[in-house]
Amino acid sequence: MPLIEWDENFSVNIDRIDREHRKLIGLINQLHEAMLEQKAQKAMTAIVTEMVDYAQTHFATEELYMEEFRYPDLDLHRVEHQKFIEKTDELRKRVSQGEFVLSLEVMRFLRDWLKGHILGTDKKYAPFLNENGIT
């Protein structure tokens, strides 16, 4: 059973960003499944690495749109992104070095952060970008 499922409430009405959010949800679900199945450390490290790298790509997409249209809360949004990258990059390092075993607590953090970010922060920029023709 997936830890998090895409729901239309997550949509920001911007196709590219919605696709990227779905991909992040899929990666969190892959990591959750790997943890539940007690997959090898190497497999979990690969998923964490892909998730962190993809999150950076996704954040760059959002920030590019916000820069282009001078979104007023861009700096706050960047800070949120940076905190997530720092936290997940530390997770990646610890998992890859075998210092850390994924737990439900970590998985809940990833799920709750992504849901909160999309439904809170991302939903705030959506109307602004939509009004500027980004769909």
Rank of each mutant, 00 (worst) to 15 (best):
R108S: 14
R92N: 05
K42L: 13
H81G: 03
G98K: 03
Y71V: 00
T49S: 15
P127N: 04
F100N: 12
Q82L: 12
Q38K: 15
P2M: 08
F100Y: 15
A46D: 11
M107S: 15
K124Y: 07
D75F: 09
Q30F: 11
K124C: 06
F109Y: 07
M1C: 07
L24K: 07
R19N: 14
I4V: 13
V95D: 15
Y65N: 02
T135D: 12
W113G: 00
W113S: 00
E37V: 14
N13H: 14
T88V: 07
E20A: 04
H21V: 00
L91Y: 06
A40F: 09
S103M: 09
Q82Y: 09
Y65A: 03
Y65S: 01
I118Y: 05
V106N: 09
W113K: 00
H58F: 03
G98Y: 07
I118C: 01
T49E: 09
I17N: 04
L24Q: 05
E105Y: 14
L64C: 15
S103C: 02
V95L: 12
Q56S: 08
G116E: 03
H32A: 10
E50G: 03
V52Y: 02
T88I: 08
A55N: 05
M66Q: 11
A126N: 03
I28Y: 13
A60S: 14
F128M: 05
K93C: 04
I4S: 11
V12D: 04
K87E: 08
R92Q: 08
P2S: 12
I47T: 02
E131K: 09
D18I: 02
F84L: 08
Y125K: 04
A46C: 06
K83W: 08
I118H: 03
L3K: 14
F10N: 00
F59R: 00
A60V: 10
G98M: 04
A46K: 07
L119F: 05
L114T: 06
A55H: 03
Q30N: 13
D18A: 01
L104K: 13
I85H: 05
I14D: 00
D75Q: 12
D112T: 06
E99T: 01
Q41F: 13
E5H: 06
I17F: 05
K39E: 15
R111K: 14
E99G: 01
L102S: 04
P72I: 04
D7Q: 12
L3V: 15
A126V: 00
D112W: 08
R70S: 13
M107D: 15
K87D: 06
K124Q: 06
D53Y: 11
Y54C: 00
F10C: 02
V95Y: 14
D73V: 13
R78M: 05
I17H: 04
G133W: 10
E63I: 00
I134H: 08
F128T: 02
E68M: 10
E68N: 10
K87T: 07
L114R: 10
Q56N: 06
S103V: 05
L129W: 08
I25K: 01
E68I: 14
G120P: 02
L91H: 07
D53A: 12
K123W: 11
L24V: 04
D7C: 11
R22Q: 07
G120T: 04
K83G: 15
Y71C: 02
M35L: 13
R19C: 11
E50N: 12
K93A: 09
L110P: 03
L129Y: 05
R78S: 04
D15N: 15
